[in-house]
């Protein structure tokens, strides 16, 4: 399987890359990890005329905390997150998510930023980033723009990113004290796209009630979804079994899955309910200092 012909360009700076995007417009595609794009090109389901390879741009592969946020560079690979001690010790939701994306070989190439820009509702990072309230930094011809993740996904494979913009960084808020997260996925086999998956993030107050709640849903809608009503259900409450069950039910009602080879919509809804329950329990446990 061979892609159609295209022209390959490898800029050495973000500014140069943006310039190329401005020039080629919709005929260009950005190549980061390439593990969604190149398979589509091989099947000729995508045939861009220009491929702008950003892999030769220096300084885009960071993974570090500063100014109250974790910065994840445009070229930071899934495997970098999976193996990072920082992520493992402080960002359990991200650590959970990183290890269930595709397979180790794909994780060595694929990037968090690219995954978000591809905006596949089956991508695990979308749900995870919604749960942790991440921000997407878009670099375009003018100054950088910071897009809250809630405003990023428009539709399947569609984002608010401009045709001349590149996702240069993802910023994740640093974990608050008494916070915990978890990401759970049910799949047909390890590394498959989810039948359904959920990310949960909670911050507890001194009394053990939920001060902050983030819940993201994967592959149960046209985009990655935030379970807003489920979050509201839980906010301010002590996350006991009743509260968790209420939130889980709310999430299963507000998601919007489609029936497909992985299962009927009702099954996916019910999975969301089950997974939210489990993921919230785990997140709360972690917020209380458990593993």
């Amino acid at each position: 399987m061979i892609p159609d012909r295209f022209e390959y360009v490898a800029p050495s700076s973000v500014a140069e890359a943006v310039g190329l995007l401005q020039r080629y417009g919709a005929e260009a595609k950005v190549l980061a990890g390439g593990h969604s794009l190149i398979p589509l090109m091989k099947l000729r389901l995508a045939s861009p005329r220009y491929l702008v390879d950003i892999n030769r741009i220096r300084g885009l592969a960071q993974l570090q905390e500063d100014d109250g946020t974790l910065g994840v560079g445009a070229l930071t690979r899934h495997a970098d997150l999976e193996t990072s001690e920082l992520i493992r010790s402080r960002y359990p939701l991200l650590a959970d998510a990183a290890r269930v994306i595709a397979d180790p070989l794909v994780r060595n190439m694929g990037t968090l930023a690219g995954s978000l820009a591809h905006a596949d509702p089956a991508g695990d990072w979308g749900a995870a980033m919604l749960a942790v309230r991440a921000q997407v930094v878009a670099t375009g011809p003018r100054r950088d723009r910071t897009i809250p993740i809630d405003e990023f996904f428009v539709d399947t494979f569609t984002t608010t990113l401009g045709p001349d913009e590149i996702v240069s960084e993802i910023r994740v808020p640093k974990p608050s004290p008494r916070s915990g997260g978890a990401y759970l996925k049910v799949e047909r086999k390890v590394g498959d796209f989810a039948i359904a998956a959920v990310g949960t993030y909670v911050v507890l107050d001194e009394k053990g009630a939920c001060r902050q709640v983030g819940i993201g849903l994967c592959n149960v809608g046209a985009t990655s979804l935030r379970a807003k009503r489920a979050e509201e259900t839980l906010r301010g409450r002590v996350p006991d079994e009743k509260a968790i069950a209420d939130a889980a039910r709310a999430a299963s009602e507000e998601c919007d899955p489609a029936s497909d080879l992985r299962g009927p919509a009702e099954y996916k809804r019910d999975l969301v309910r089950v997974l939210i329950g489990r993921a919230l329990r785990r997140a709360v446990q972690r917020a209380k200092g458990g593993a």
């Binding site: 390879d53 892999n55 070989l105």
Partner: peptide, 26 residues
């Protein structure tokens, strides 16, 4: 044809990758 099987695995800069999903120019 779909980046699933791993028969084409090689090391690129020390990392195992599927060489069917990397361009030679890369």
């Amino acid at each position: 044809d779909t980046t699933n099987c791993g028969a084409c695995t090689v090391l690129l800069q020390g990392r195992a990758v599927k060489s069917c999903t990397v361009l030679a120019v890369q």
